[in-house]
Design a protein around this nucleic acid. Structure first.
Lengths: 204, 204
DNA sequence: CGTGGAGTTGAATACGATCAACACCGGTGG
DNA sequence: CCACCGGTGTTGATCGTATTCAACTCCACG
């Protein structure tokens, strides 16, 4: 007998992730499943708006989401990209019950699992060690943000771009330069020139 | 009978803080005390060096510490200030067992409590809810860092300075402009001019 | 086709950095 | 007590990097 498995379902991707990265096992996942929701979003869809409220986070199974803010001039500033197997959500709203600090939109058609508050609470009851994983995730987030702050303080546009390429080589190809520029804190025109300079150096 | 209490001991300040902000109570603190160390450091003392290793964090009871990095030109970039009742430490080293990402030095003569790994572990056994406080602290750190990243991406030097003054009004007076500039990501000269402009606007 | 967004390039501009000079303390030692 | 010194903060002149605004090419997509 042959079993065909063409591709994993959205929920299956999430379950696989949990089993690989957290102490939550198959049987435990079954107890948690009812607190989760799977969704598919089209490119351009806005999942959260600055100042709004939400009590869910997202786990991206396929596609690409983004967190960004708008300044007084209407320019976008990217806080975070979330490709497959990344978490994204607004802590201000989900954890502190305050208005959201940023917007979340869909850069590529994406399949996501919606992580409710119920899931977070229940997961810690069902699996005591889940809290440890959670803390690990928080520390890791802080480490990355600290690194980014340091780059914004100390590095030139070129250095920041090279760091981005090094850290997210696959994303560099998927994400438009407009978006990358808004993540690096420069204009798209400047990024274009940075890339031109790098190409020149590299060809020598 | 009169009781004189001229000033709190370093350890007492820390105990008071825990009792106010965490679920750790008097009796529980007694069980934890032996994992803590109190120290007094002179201005200029360097507690941690980039690339080094440490397994302790600090709680500042009095004085002022600072976390900073050095770039290739030898310039300092301030990651964080830690005045009284703040925590400071290098996660890369204490949590991830990797080389420290930054330096920590003493800006004012300071009394600190040294928080060992033993304390963190024991505290969670002695008081189950301490973990929740810890998570709260992590979320809060992330919130602040996200805000800072957004300011570095979106705001002018003047806006960043105003935000700093608003967020840390007391620190503004205690910290030299050289240090504030290195926190904002500008030169001391630029900060001086920003302040001049603000004074001009304000006097109109 | 043709339309609109992405990326590139150029010219002018603005903002902060750099370099240098100087005033102003606060502390130290003769 | 005063002279000196080093660090801080200010100001000016100049420089450099990134921004702004505009024009143009190149595709992808309807």
């Amino acid at each position: 007998m042959l079993t065909f498995k063409l591709h994993n379902s959205t929920m299956q991707v999430f379950q696989d992730y949990l089993q690989q990265h957290t102490p939550i096992k198959k049987e435990q996942f079954q107890l948690l499943k009812h607190t989760l929701l799977e969704k598919k979003y089209d490119k351009g869809k806005i999942l959260l708006t600055e100042g709004g409220k939400t009590d869910v986070n997202y786990f991206v199974c396929s596609g690409l989401l983004r967190a960004y803010t708008l300044d007084v001039h209407g320019k976008e500033h990217t806080i975070q990209f979330a490709p497959e197997n990344w978490w994204i959500g607004d802590r201000n709203s989900t954890y502190f019950n305050e208005p959201a600090a940023f917007n979340i939109d869909v850069l590529e058609e994406s399949e996501v699992v919606i992580i409710t508050k119920d899931f977070m609470e229940l997961a810690q009851h069902v699996c005591l060690d889940f809290a440890k994983y959670n803390i690990h995730l928080l520390h890791n987030t802080i480490r990355h943000m600290q690194r980014r702050i340091n780059l914004l303080l100390a590095a030139t546009a070129e250095e920041r771009y090279l760091d981005f390429v090094h850290l997210y080589p696959k994303l560099t190809l998927r994400i438009s330069q407009i978006m990358i520029a808004s993540y690096l804190g420069i204009t798209p025109e400047s990024l274009s020139r940075v890339r031109k300079e790098l190409a020149k150096k590299h060809s020598k």
